[in-house]
Design a protein around this nucleic acid. Sequence first.
DNA 1: CTGTTAGCGCCTTCAA
DNA 2: TTGAAGGCGCTAACAG
Lengths: 352, 352
Amino acid sequence: MSRTQRATVRDVATLAGVSTATVSRVFDPAYTHLVAQETRERVLAAAEQLNFSINHVARSLKTRATKTVALIAPELANDFFMELIESMDQVLEKAGYTLLVASSSNSVAEEQKRLTLFAERLVDGIVVIPAGARGEHLERMNRQGMPLLLVDRLVEGCALDAVLSANEDAAAALTRALLQDGYRRIAFVGGDISISTARERLAGYGRAMAAAGLPADGSLVRLGGMGVADGYMRMEEILNSSEPPDALVAVNLLVHLGMQKRLLEEYRKGESVPPFAIAAFDRTDYSAFLPRCVYIAAQDATGLGATAADRILTKIKTTQSQITPEKSRGLNVQELEPEIVRLPVKILPAGL
Amino acid sequence: MSRTQRATVRDVATLAGVSTATVSRVFDPAYTHLVAQETRERVLAAAEQLNFSINHVARSLKTRATKTVALIAPELANDFFMELIESMDQVLEKAGYTLLVASSSNSVAEEQKRLTLFAERLVDGIVVIPAGARGEHLERMNRQGMPLLLVDRLVEGCALDAVLSANEDAAAALTRALLQDGYRRIAFVGGDISISTARERLAGYGRAMAAAGLPADGSLVRLGGMGVADGYMRMEEILNSSEPPDALVAVNLLVHLGMQKRLLEEYRKGESVPPFAIAAFDRTDYSAFLPRCVYIAAQDATGLGATAADRILTKIKTTQSQITPEKSRGLNVQELEPEIVRLPVKILPAGL
DNA sequence: CTGTTAGCGCCTTCAA
DNA sequence: TTGAAGGCGCTAACAG
């Protein structure tokens, strides 16, 4: 069928014996009720016959709305981010929006490129899991009127709305759980302090240790990186240290995994390993299989995604209803103060 | 700045003292070399001053190309799919394309909805990891001229191009590895036979068993589902069976995980468990931590993604260069035979 | 090398 | 309840 061009509203109008305006109304949920029942049916029949479907590109050019939200993440191959993305997709879908995704490959420069690209594509809003500590490009975009939302991570010094986990409280709770089990030399492992999650989690750990009257000094704090290789190296250092800790708090999933990999090598070599207890951020289906892991801080990735989707949709609606740019002069509501939502993090015994 | 509307080519043209066509040329990589150096600089300066960036929506309406590729996957929160998606994103990015993603939630109906949505959005091509055994909607879309490519899974009876793993060979190799280690009662666990990967892997297992002169009869073949819960249930059945196998081949990552979860419960209860050896499809960073897993068939997710991206781009190019639809009448090159690429799968000792 | 000129397909007042 | 008409911002011939 229809080896020819796609049918347009004009084709449908001609066949149905109505004007293009009427066809347009039938296909716009907001106006379709203004069309007489009988006319509508005639139009739909004609459309069916011609295998017509609306051309969203043309519509977008006219309405200046693409019904599209973009997401930029530092990486995609990451259980936590993926769960978040899937849940965003679900919510956006229901609202008639489509999700564009891109990885910034943990590079701020790449993030900036993707941002520009998306803006050119007139996406209605952008959700960013920032790759680093710089955010001028994000603020600029936001100032130019693009609805923008940070998820999971903050960028220091940037006044941008965000949806985050309660990282500090969670890290404190994780540390307290180890303290209650009698551990005293608790180390904090991994973390790039240019990333807000790492800073906040470190702060929570420090708070809990201080509250217990315990030091959280140099040799117990093993910062550096957020990836598998980093966790591996930190564990190597710990194994070689003169005064090893008796328990470890891992800053995130990947660092935890790297630590476990290094330990696995020791087991395999038959080396005796100090009986560390491990508490770590991020739950996966595999968590139960990681030895010595006793507590998990399970972020609500699905909740973060759903909340982020809701919030960006609200921002889009608000922005688009401000149709009169001259009015808003001097009344820049947005500038007040960024709105930050924190979702609680559950502390679970590992093995769940 | 620029509290006013976005600048357009016209604004830039006026400021630079050139025509809109010239501005357009400057911003189209394919034509920019036709503009005099000095003119180009003037245009770029004007654009910079006005903070101009091209409006892709308007461009798309005119050129009938959105520089966009869509991907529909049965689910996103899946290590294998994500690695594939990330690698597609990488390749597409380099070619100036943007990736749209959607989950079909393992539902053919949902898949169909998303497909229509993407078509309305005039994506240039669609890559699908099919959710099920039905594919009329995919064939129809392809017949209407939309470049379409299957990845990872085939749909029986559908003549569509595809990029796949060499599932049958891999499953046979996995089974042979167990045979060489002396196992004889080898079971095949999990698999929805409406999904091609499951069918192909089952066939490979059967082939290897037959070649060894061993039965691969009813109680050894435990089909049913591709998810964690399915693996869990299959393992439950195996534990309760009168003649348990001595080794197991898991159809995929999630089934393998489910099996391990069930076994973990036994260990925890202190029950004695038959000393199964496990060989499974799909490698992750966690594979090394799964007990009794001795071999892994590591699909090349990155390779699949990159290949898929390459192939869809080629198809897009071909389609778009057929600018004269009347010419192609009766010369429908596509109909010949679907092109199927198979990527090899590595068999690794587990623990890597 | 650059400008003129028609639209791409749709939406949206304004009038009828 | 419906129709007529003027663009949205850009590109692609075709001239010059």
